[in-house]
Design a protein around this nucleic acid. Structure first.
Lengths: 165, 165
DNA sequence: CACCCTAGGTTCTTATTAGCAACTCAGCTG
DNA sequence: CAGCTGAGTTGCTAATAAGAACCTAGGGTG
C-alpha cells in the first residue's frame, strides 16, 4: 500500500483539532464572530453548560485565539468580554468551509440557514482552492497531501508498510 | 447589542459539527484521503480505540461521507475498505483550511508538517476567500455572517436582545 | 480435518469529559 | 446592609472514550 506512515500527532490537522476539535469550540467562535461576546450571552445562546463554557473560553484565551477585554457598562462594575485575536480571525476560513459544506449537503428544504457576505459589496463569499501557479482545483483527487519539512516518522512500532520511516 | 439570536442548532456549522465535530472524525478522514482505508491500518496509524473507530466509521458511512467497498486480496477472504464519496471528498476543503491555519500558527521550528500540492503542476494549494463579485477578502472583518432562507429564530426563552425574533 | 492466523469487529471495565444544579464572590442599587 | 447580577467554581451524575479481552469467518499448514 502506497501511503505514508507519519506521526499522526505531528500534523497541522491534529494540532489544530487539539484546540478546536470538539463539539463546542467552533460554535463558540461562530457566536463570537457574530458579536456574542459575553459569558452569559454565550451560555444562553448556545445552551452550553457553564463550567464547560468557562473551560473552553480559557482554553481559547490560552491558545491566543480570544482575548479578554475589560469593559464597563454604566452603573455596573467592570466586566470583560471575549474578542477574537488576529489568529482567531483567521479561523474564519475554517468556519466558511464548514458553512459551505453544511449548506450544500445538510440544508433542509427551506434553504441554507446562513449567508456569508462581503460587507463592502454585498456579494456572497466563497473559498476557492487554487494552486500557487493559478490553476483552479475542481476535485479533491487533483491534490496530494504530503509530508512537509516538519513531518516526523511515526513513533508507534507498527508492522505497517511505509515509505518514510 | 447588535447580534442576531438565531436557533443555534439550525445552522450549517452546528449540523456539520454533529458529524465531524469531535477529536477523531477529521483525523480519520485525513487518513482516508491519504489512502489509509482499512480498519486495522487506521487503528494502528491513529492509535484510536477499536470500538471508537468502529463507531466513527459507521457514523461516516451513515452520513454518506464514506462507503464500504468490498475487495479481495489474493489468498484471503473478501474484506472491505472505506472510500470517500463525493460529499466526503468535498470535506477536503475543510481539512485544507485547518491545515493552512495550523501551518501558520502551530508549526514548530522545523516548518509545516504537511504540504498540499496540486498533482498536475506540483504547486502548493491554498484556499482563497473571494466574493461572487470577484473581490479578494483580506480579513474576517470584511465579511458578515447573516441568516439565510433556512434560518429560524431561537426557541430558547431568553431575555437577550435580538433583531430577529 | 484440527489448529493457527488475520481483518474486522464486539463486549467488558475503567477513566475522562459533559451536563445540571447549587454555591460563591464582587460590586452596584435601593 | 439586603438583594440583584455577571461571571464564574464546586460537587454530583450521565454520557463518551480508552484499553484490553474475546469472537468470528475464511483461508493456509501439518
Amino acid at each position: 500500500m502506497g501511503w505514508i506512515d507519519l506521526d499522526s500527532r505531528a500534523c497541522s490537522i491534529a494540532r489544530t483539532l487539539e484546540i478546536v476539535g470538539d463539539r463546542w469550540t467552533l460554535l463558540i467562535l461562530r457566536d463570537v464572530f457574530n458579536g456574542v461576546r459575553r459569558f452569559a450571552d454565550l451560555q444562553r445562546h448556545l445552551g452550553i453548560a457553564r463550567n464547560v463554557l468557562t473551560q473552553r473560553l480559557t482554553a481559547l484565551v490560552d491558545a491566543g485565539i480570544l482575548v479578554r477585554i475589560p469593559y464597563r457598562e454604566p452603573g455596573t462594575r467592570s466586566r470583560h468580554e471575549y474578542e477574537p485575536t488576529d489568529r482567531g480571525h483567521e479561523l474564519l476560513s475554517v468556519l466558511l468551509t464548514i458553512i459551505a459544506w453544511g449548506d450544500r449537503h445538510l440544508a433542509d428544504a427551506s434553504g441554507p440557514p446562513v449567508h456569508v457576505r462581503h460587507t463592502a459589496c454585498g456579494a456572497d463569499v466563497r473559498l476557492v482552492p487554487v494552486c500557487e501557479a493559478g490553476h483552479a482545483i475542481k476535485s479533491a483527487s487533483e491534490v496530494l497531501i504530503e509530508p512537509g519539512p516538519g513531518a516526523r516518522p511515526a513513533r508507534r512500532s507498527s508492522s505497517v508498510s511505509s515509505q518514510m520511516d
